[in-house]
Write a protein that binds this DNA or RNA. Sequence first.
DNA 1: CAGTGGTCTAGACCACGCG
DNA 2: GCGTGGTCTAGACCACTGT
Lengths: 246, 246
Amino acid sequence: MQNVPSRHHDIADDIRRQITTGRIKPGERLPSESGLAGQYKVSTATLRSALAMLQGEGLVEKIHGKGNFVRHRLRKIMYVGGWGTLDPWTAAEAALRVTDRATAIEAHGHLAGLLRVPNGSPLTEFVSVSYEGDSPHSLARIYVPRDLERTKALGDGLSYMRTEKSFAVLSPLSAEVRETVSARPPTPDEASTLRINPTTAVLAITRVAADTAGRVVEAALLVFPGDRVDAVFTTHHVINERQTQG
Amino acid sequence: MQNVPSRHHDIADDIRRQITTGRIKPGERLPSESGLAGQYKVSTATLRSALAMLQGEGLVEKIHGKGNFVRHRLRKIMYVGGWGTLDPWTAAEAALRVTDRATAIEAHGHLAGLLRVPNGSPLTEFVSVSYEGDSPHSLARIYVPRDLERTKALGDGLSYMRTEKSFAVLSPLSAEVRETVSARPPTPDEASTLRINPTTAVLAITRVAADTAGRVVEAALLVFPGDRVDAVFTTHHVINERQTQG
DNA sequence: CAGTGGTCTAGACCACGCG
DNA sequence: GCGTGGTCTAGACCACTGT
């Protein structure tokens, strides 16, 4: 439990203090890595490992060829679990842009298991990346069994999603939503799509929605940069007649 | 979206393949870092960054002075959100040991905000670390306003927790539980308590339970190693008379 | 082009675990 | 003491961004 002070740790503390006390302001660029290495009298490798800590904390954003910048806001964006449909984003929708893509694919191993359909079953895959300002802040891959797609006025799933502009569960028929949340490093794909460092953890949510008959109507793989997004889940206790619903 | 193959990335891929194909089995030790560096004809720094990727993925555990070991099981442990009381752990309780500590403290800034009590209010803090086999797999810090402690047959919160052996919400009076989940690097304290690398992300859950009057009866800060624990949240849709409750 | 971060080397020295 | 991983150095060379 004791601390073994290491040089890169000390340097990270020092820079962190300068950021949190406002000595260096959001949006500002830090001195170059070689410059800082000179200031602190360490090698560039050591200095870089100090910056890596701050990156992991989301305080600093590195941009290749440009420099290290102090991040603006921290943990402002929220993913709301369950029927988050009821507008987590509406307030922020003005600044929100979504890029969508729908593809016909077949269920394979893992996906088939999640959706509880036989291997090779036809699915529709919706991929969407949403942005907040310049930077991407979510990657969603949603899978719906092809034969369920028309259950609702969902003929064109794409436009449906565009309208909602959220990670709404596609089918309002679902009776139960199960969300599994994990913290893990991004895949190379996710890292480049979300434009985050491979060392920055992501918040990965696997959401499976089932209807009253227990049939899975949708599986979603949602990925958020861990340094900018939190997920919120609210559970209401049902007390006698008093029934609540989020 | 293109891949720029880097040496450490290639090496990580190669070792990962050897692990996932069973070429190197769980519990086994990898060759020493200098040995591997020799095999792959790279410097130790490069090899170490390859191992760092595998560590982040939870495939490999480094032990200072001993070596790099292949992890046994992956993502088997689950934290269950809401009223997880209803036994996430019972099955695993045999192998479970919990270390508890209760302390009288005062609410300060952040904590006071969570509990919605004035700064300086008396609280009881429960700290518990739970193990699975040799390795710790959770750190829980639970805060209860002192004047609420006796509301229930909770005179001795400590033994209460020991009985439950879970992260049960302490007071059954709570009507709403709100859990905020984030993926972030561990604090130095958390890293050493959970015996994880500072680069391995943790799944951090802040749980606030309120009673029917909206009064906060408990705040909990739960931290899990991201490479071994997932959190599961289930939301039931209330449909007419048919009301569900987890 | 100049300036920035990204990867890598070939070492040195320190801290930990174990016999 | 010996072998392990942990930190660090003082460079080299490559890749990206701007002018």
